[in-house]
Design a protein around this nucleic acid. Structure first.
Lengths: 119, 119
DNA sequence: GCGCCAATGCAACCATCGGTTGCATCCGCC
DNA sequence: GGCGGATGCAACCGATGGTTGCATTGGCGC
């Protein structure tokens, strides 16, 4: 298990900029390489490349409107991606639980510096 | 939001091989670059580099035993990573729901072409 | 209808990263 | 003490993310 991961999907959403692109597209509903790049710390060309990757992964699809190429999120595919995220998370979570101790681990670091450290 | 992501953590677990490494370490409890590389499709050196990355991200830590350098998972940090995974997932999921349609989207593509499209 | 401007596409180039091979080193154990 | 297995370091390679620069194209206003 843990292996049934669609690697193209993962690497698509594994890229920080691409996650931002997806976020922006979800916010605005639609966007072009140009408009998105205005709201990102990278150039239009970089965004265009990312959009191409996302397109190949099926996470977005483009429609030409006038001289613009508008992209929007493919809800179904993004839903699949989310499912895979949580799949991996659940696998590890289960494994950690089986090895016990996860609860305390989270606890400890949620409380972070609160407790013990005193010079 | 969505921005509060520890990028080092994400890129650490975003790498397929590193996820496998974490899996193996969780299974076995402990491992060295050499032993892990025997169960992975990459060389010992590649594994060593990945372990270094995971170490820098705090997801594993090493202990020298004899002439071996044994790595084990840091449960607390991996728990944080899992939390971030699900955080991103939940953000997108919520956004998708708000834009409505997620249910039908999954439905549609689970049922695939079954329904409406007829030329 | 025409021209200008903006948006896209393409190409070259660079840095970083994952991966490999090869070699040096080092440290237990017999 | 020496052999052997394990680690570490370095050079090198291909893919990828990013940039700049330029060519192209196609809308829209005049």
């Amino acid at each position: 298990m843990t292996a049934a991961i669609d690697d193209q999907l993962w690497s698509a959403i594994g890229e920080p900029v691409r996650r931002r692109v997806l976020d922006l597209l979800l916010e605005d509903g639609v966007g072009t390489a140009t408009t998105l790049s205005e709201r990102l710390p990278v150039t239009r060309q970089a965004v265009a490349k990312h959009l191409a990757v996302l397109d190949r992964a099926g996470l977005v699809h483009a429609g030409v409107v006038g001289r613009e190429k508008q992209y929007r999120v493919d809800d179904a595919q993004l839903a699949r991606a989310v499912a895979q995220l949580s799949e991996v998370g659940q696998t590890w979570d289960a494994r950690l639980r089986r090895i016990k101790r996860i609860a305390e681990a989270i606890q400890q670091q949620s409380d972070h510096e609160t407790g013990g450290d005193r010079p």
